[in-house]
């Protein structure tokens, strides 16, 4: 499979599958802590693939990788915190 040798092509495949999973979780009405954590994890993996393989920051100076991946961690953590508060 020559197609899969290209990291961008691999990333695209994973992104499509991951999007379908999130959409499916919506279809079955997934709600609550487990599904929120699952969706945030999926979004994190997807975002990381875009940062590393689409933006091509995998080989970039460490600072920029940390800034963008740090943004993902920050946003996911804030959303998780807000959802955790809403469950109380």
């Amino acid at each position: 499979m020559d197609f899969l040798k290209n990291p961008a092509h691999r990333a695209w495949l994973v992104l499509i599958v991951a999007t379908s999973i999130t959409w499916y979780l919506g279809e079955v009405g997934a709600a609550g802590t487990a599904s929120i954590v699952a969706m945030l994890l999926i979004a994190f993996v997807k975002g990381r693939l875009v940062i590393l393989d689409f933006m091509e920051l995998r080989e970039a100076p460490k600072m920029w990788r940390i800034l963008l991946e740090g943004w993902l961690i920050l946003v996911s953590s804030l959303i998780l915190l807000a959802y955790w508060i809403s469950l109380k």
Binding site: G26, M39, G47, I79
Partner: peptide
């Protein structure tokens, strides 16, 4: 080209967070 492409990927990245947050997570 790389600069413009990076901006375009950012638009994608933002939607990747926005879609589950606003449309799905509950």
């Amino acid at each position: 080209l790389e600069s413009g492409a990076a901006y375009w990927h950012m638009v994608d990245l933002l939607w990747i967070v926005l879609f589950p947050l606003v449309y799905v997570m509950r």
